[in-house]
Computed example of a mutant assay.
Amino acid sequence: MTMRIAVLIPCYNEELTIGKVVQDFRRELPDAEIYVYDNNSRDRTAEVAREAGAIVRRETRQGKGNVVRSMFRDIDADVYVMTDGDDTYPAEFVHDLIRPIIEGEADMCIGDRHSDGSYSKENKRPFHNFGNQLVRKLINTLFHADLRDIMTGYRAFSRRFAKTMPIQSEGFEIETEMTLHALDKRFRILEIPIQYRDRPPGSHSKLNTLSDGIRVLKTVFWIFKDYKPLAFFTAVALILFLAGLGVGIPVLYEYFSFGRIAKIPSAILAVGFMVLATNSLTCGFILDTIVRHHRDYYELLQNEFKG
């Protein structure tokens, strides 16, 4: 049976490059259906994509996460390929990405931009590189993984992964969420080395260093809290415990030395810190149990999935 392959291209103001991207993937995958989802573009992105032979649809909710959510829900295929419309990901690597999916060796293949050094060479935004490395190190540490590229937009998915992933992100954090979901739910991940090229002259990135840096920090916090609640709240409890000790030790010294306590406010504050530390640790145990039950429930849903 022939595998149905869908190429998914989220787009926002990519008039200059989208035509070439569609043509390149049509050349590499002549039997695939190529979908361009126009995310409120103010230029001729939709018209150019349609002229190049793509199936064009519109997503009015702004943000790449919203687009990918609609793509996974609306499009029916056996293999999904996601790429960007800015012509930074060469189409010729798509065969390496989809082969493990077709052969049943992986549920998600990631186009790794870092192995050959092309991303660090072509990308002129050092703070984005720093943010990528920060998130990658955190995820690898928490999940005992060894992934090299967490935020790449060039990926291939199995039908099971695409149809059972609950997407919560609205913006560019969607790539990080996909990686987290795959690691947490024990999907099979393969990284495929690819080359990365910078945008052509005249094409401008939609990323903003300041706002996206804040998003990266929020993502780091969210990863730690939601996926590893016991570790997160234990760390919070330790900070509160040390604060309680710092405030309470002089009070205890005073009591054991003179048999009385004159620093009543300090004693109350120290007790407060210790109570908060205990509550934080308790929350960590409760939420960790909930997360474990959620993973078990997801596994049962996977058994019922009809691919």
Results as ranks from 00 to 15, higher is better:
G244C: 01
E254Y: 08
A235I: 00
V251F: 06
A267P: 00
T219V: 02
F233L: 05
F172E: 14
D226S: 10
F241T: 15
M165W: 14
M274A: 09
W222Q: 10
M165E: 08
K228S: 02
A156S: 11
F273H: 03
L242V: 14
R188Y: 02
I268C: 03
R260G: 06
F157I: 10
E191Q: 09
T164S: 09
S266C: 03
D226M: 12
V251I: 09
G248K: 04
M178H: 07
L252T: 13
F221M: 12
D226N: 15
F187M: 07
K206Q: 14
R199K: 15
I239K: 12
P200E: 07
T209L: 13
L190S: 12
D226P: 02
T209N: 09
Y255I: 13
V236P: 00
Q195N: 10
F172V: 14
L269T: 06
H204C: 05
L238T: 10
A235S: 12
G202R: 03
V247F: 04
S257A: 14
V216Y: 01
V216M: 11
S158L: 11
N208P: 02
R160E: 15
E170H: 14
A243Q: 01
P166S: 07
A270K: 05
F256S: 10
A156E: 07
H204Y: 15
S203K: 15
T179D: 10
